[in-house]
Design a protein around this nucleic acid. Structure first.
Lengths: 335, 335
DNA sequence: GTGAAAGCGCTAACAA
DNA sequence: TTGTTAGCGCTTTCAC
């Protein structure tokens, strides 16, 4: 391994000078700088990041913790983070939290041990108090997809309520009147908010979403399938189906077809998230686009900024809006 | 930040002793060890990973470089790596290579700067010479999805030829005789091998896959769609369609339906990889399962092993086999 | 069994 | 403009 001393010795200067050259510090003579640069190139010298981190007490590493990378949504989130991170010349440290509060905390701990400068966290289950405490300890902590008033300026999140509202208004505009919904059994945050938005839109038209028309299950394909079966078994009728997310929507479509109900001819179905899979299924899914990649990039830049200045909580927050992507799973209601 | 010195001072011992306790070194008295442990717990002391890395010249970090995390296949790969890595008490460093030779090399460089102990690399475009040179410099380098004879003992790869062969044999067993294929325009490795396997199986039955029945395009959904359109425009007829991967298969199915051809009633379609999306599309895709998560875990353990001993190239290599997953996109050929 | 001390590779005062 | 020097937090001989 070639160290800064080797460079210094061969270039005939001190290590301090080499260090200055590496960091483009102003106070170096041109000739000297050129010589050092030449030696660096010849030797293929690379500063040891650990040593730099040790002495400067900060690293060029950013950590991200998400439930599981194998899920499309989180893969895309991580990808957005990675791009922004490497654009800034930083490194990415990853940790899966596996949807468990404890391993989420463990993941954060181990990231901190490595002195990452900032942490991007997608937390679903940790409570607000924990997150607030964490934010106090970690200047560069940013929450994605979560809003906590006390640390609003570290939250990069999505307006789920409006999302639910807009997608419902769209269905309404297509003439639909009979709605049903499949949603997550965990009625925490996202699912509850999206549903709330839908109910709001419905109410404005004097319509409603009665509880018997809302089936709950796991927030994946199987869950969507299962939930629709339940709806059908109860004999519910509807022309528009609101799914909590794309996965549930696709499962729902499967169950509908299995029951001889065509989408969109008989029933229109909408999803939420706009995962890649929304373009793969048939009919291609009309859904609300979740700008997760942009949000991830935004979160990284915010995290870097926060980690530099030590920012006090401000009232400001970072709210993104979903938008509708029209594809083939919705059609006008036939009267 | 609480350091080892703080612990030592409060426990009334030297830092050396604390260090021994941390590492469960044998030579510490029971009383002393208990006291130190207590203080560590009270203070919430966490060793500084950078300092440890600096002095011990090795880290508990493993790097992984893949083209893009947002692609399902790589997300799953990364997820497999992450699980194995954290099971071993290591940390994961990520870098996207964006399908470019140079950024792939950059990614590796920056990982090395951080002294990761091992690197898991999914390289598609770097040439063998480069990879071999890299392997010489990095003891813990492991290649996923690639086989290079000179460094066979660092390759964790899949038998694509047999995969192509088996899936074709399956179609043959269903009575199909007229085959067509959609494959990647880049006929390097995987696509070429899978096709080769198919041709082999066909030949054994006295059948063949004439060039005009093979359409090439990008290895994604759009490509699959495009390729099938081409086939159809040329007036080719077939009852079985071999797709390079699941994405192309799904695109193909879309194009087929658009042309009024039903899957599987009129044409059977098979994919390769078994991405999550294969269970989302309709009909659900019959495909060859690529055990990427297992391979990733295997690669991690191998990488750790290699980074410990300094292993010389042996003849051994690590070959995984795909297997068929029967779903709904294939049916018996009607004669 | 325990401590003292050297030093990993680097940065940043402070001198010169 | 450049060099000297003192650590950063930790591990690891080598004494005791």
């Amino acid at each position: 391994m070639v160290t800064i001393k080797d460079v210094a010795r061969i270039a005939g200067v001190s290590t301090a000078t080499v260090s200055r050259v590496i960091h483009n510090g102003g106070q170096v003579g041109d000739a000297c700088r050129a010589k050092v640069k030449k030696v660096i190139a010849e030797l293929g010298y690379q500063p040891n990041a650990n040593a730099q981190a040790l002495v400067s007490k900060t690293t060029k590493a950013i950590g991200v913790v998400t439930p599981r990378l194998s899920m499309s949504f989180f893969g895309t989130l991580a990808s957005g983070v990675e791009n922004a991170v490497s654009e800034n010349g930083y490194k990415l440290l990853m940790a899966n939290s596996l949807y468990e509060t404890q391993s989420e905390l463990d993941a954060i701990q181990s990231l901190r041990q490595h002195n990452c400068r900032a942490i991007i966290l997608h937390s679903e289950y940790s409570d607000e108090a924990t997150l607030i405490r964490l934010a106090e300890e970690i200047p560069g902590l940013v929450l994605v997809n979560r809003y906590i008033p006390q640390i609003a300026n570290r939250c990069v999140w999505l307006d789920n309520i409006r999302g639910g509202q807009w997608v419902t208004e769209y269905l309404l505009a297509q003439g639909h009147q009979q709605f049903a919904a499949v949603t997550s059994i965990y009625q925490n945050r996202d699912p509850a908010e999206r549903l709330q938005g839908s109910r709001q839109a419905l109410m404005e038209q004097g319509l409603s979403l009665p509880p018997e028309r809302v089936a709950k299950s796991t927030a994946n394909m199987e869950g969507g399938e299962q939930a629709v079966k339940e709806l059908l078994a109860r004999g519910e009728t509807f022309t528009a189906l609101l799914a909590y997310n794309d996965l549930m929507a696709i499962g729902a479509i499967h169950a509908l077809f299995a029951a001889g109900i065509r989408v969109p001819e008989d029933v229109s179905v909408v999803g939420f998230d706009d995962l890649p899979v929304a373009r793969a299924c048939r009919p291609r899914l009309t859904t609300m686009h979740y700008p997760i990649e942009e949000m991830a990039a935004y979160a990284v830049n915010l995290a870097i900024k926060l980690s530099n200045a030590n920012c006090q909580p401000t009232g400001q927050t970072y709210l993104f809006m979903p938008h509708l992507v029209e594809r083939d799973s919705v059609t006008k209601a036939s009267r």
